[in-house]
């Protein structure tokens, strides 16, 4: 992972009055998997389609391997793409689907090599026994795996994944997500993954970019994005947060009786709202405590409690699952913070 494989320089696209992309700049390194995360309409799919050549741009430049491909047709770009909707050619078997790109002029190989490669790829995605099956004979997860094999068959410069898991049920989604990551690491293809599911993005990507209104808000490795958001939008969009009022003084904020460092980008003085993660809040049963547990849910690995503070603020805290039996509704508790830094937004 060293040289830059993909560069999107200040790309912009409007659909009538709606600005889908408003000057997006993004770099993806060779072999890296970058996930673009954001709410519906933030421009992530438009960015991916622009990179694939399926969407014209109003402004900006796209470089792949240092070569300007901004005006190159989609069929000459050599991008492998997996779509949200099942996109296998219905009149072709799984093997024929995987081989299709290799029959075309751009990636043409001999029939023998084609067969060998398609068999290898179907093996890679765990569907070697389904080579002769047609799309209507396969489940959604199987179809998406074949679509992945088909996209990889042409040895794409960049693999583009447009919410490939969103049509699948939860269990298959997690399985396939892990498989996509395994295959991507094995093949080493530079990958752009678009999703609105933060767990998916954080779980699969080397770096995650959060988009809003056509621009990148922050791009960082998953843990940094989660622990050190640079804006209130990123803090609130990625993971859960509790808005708790506090007083900021310089680079610290006073909340729940603790002095906590503020993250860069926070307000620097006066009253503000600290955005605190549920797992950063420690709740301990204490008869003299001023807070009260409203409800507590055992979620297997963790226990999630809703707690009313003395000033009426309602927060969500997360603790070890063993606490579930202690933190019952109505229990008086003491609430403290266990985090090195928080983001504080203005009121």
């Amino acid at each position: 992972m060293s040289s830059v494989a993909v560069q999107l320089n200040d790309i912009a696209k409007s659909f009538g009055p709606v600005k889908a992309l408003a000057g997006l700049t993004l770099e993806i390194k060779e072999g890296e998997l970058v996930a673009l995360l954001g709410p519906s309409g933030c421009g992530k799919t438009t960015a991916l389609r622009a990179l694939a050549g399926l969407q014209d741009l109003d402004r900006g430049q796209i470089l792949v391997g240092g070569k300007d491909i901004t005006f190159q047709a989609a069929n000459h770009r050599g991008m492998g793409m997996v779509f949200q909707a099942y996109s296998l050619f219905p009149h072709m078997s799984a093997q024929e689907n995987v081989e299709y790109g290799l029959k075309l002029k751009a990636h043409k190989v001999s029939a023998e090599d084609r067969r060998k490669k398609s068999s290898e790829l179907l093996e890679l995605v765990g569907l070697s026994t389904h080579a002769g099956h047609y799309p209507h004979q396969m489940s959604g997860g199987q179809q998406q795996r074949v679509a992945l094999a088909r996209a990889l068959a042409i040895e794409p410069k960049v693999l583009l994944l447009d919410e490939p898991l969103s049509a699948l049920d939860a269990k298959v989604r997690i399985q396939l997500r892990d498989e996509i990551r395994r295959i991507q690491l094995e093949v080493g293809t530079t990958t752009l993954f678009v999703t609105h599911d933060q767990e998916e993005a954080l779980g699969i990507a080397d770096r995650v970019g959060v988009m809003r209104d056509g621009v990148l808000q922050q791009i960082a490795v998953p843990q940094e994005l989660y622990d050190r958001p640079t804006s209130a939008f990123v803090a609130e969009f990625v993971g859960l947060t509790n808005p708790i009022r506090g007083t900021v003084s310089g680079s610290t904020v006073s909340i729940l009786g603790s002095q906590i460092a503020t993250l860069p980008g926070s307000v620097t003085s006066g009253e503000g709202t600290a955005l605190v993660r549920p797992e950063s809040i420690r709740v301990e049963a204490d008869p003299s405590g001023s807070a009260k547990v409203v409800t507590s849910s055992f979620l297997g690995s963790v226990c999630r409690s809703i707690v009313d503070l003395a000033d009426g603020t309602r927060i969500t805290a997360q603790s070890a699952s063993s606490q579930a039996s202690v933190l019952r509704a109505g229990t008086s508790v003491r609430v403290t913070l266990d985090t090195p830094a928080v983001f504080v937004k203005s009121l």
Binding site: G53, F83, S87, Y100, R150
Partner: peptide, 20 residues
């Protein structure tokens, strides 16, 4: 009845010309 739009885009990204 079929999402031909996505199928056509999939074919394009694989390198198919418009006529193909």
């Amino acid at each position: 009845a079929v999402d031909v739009h996505t199928l056509a885009e999939a074919a394009r990204t694989l390198g198919a010309s418009t006529s193909r």
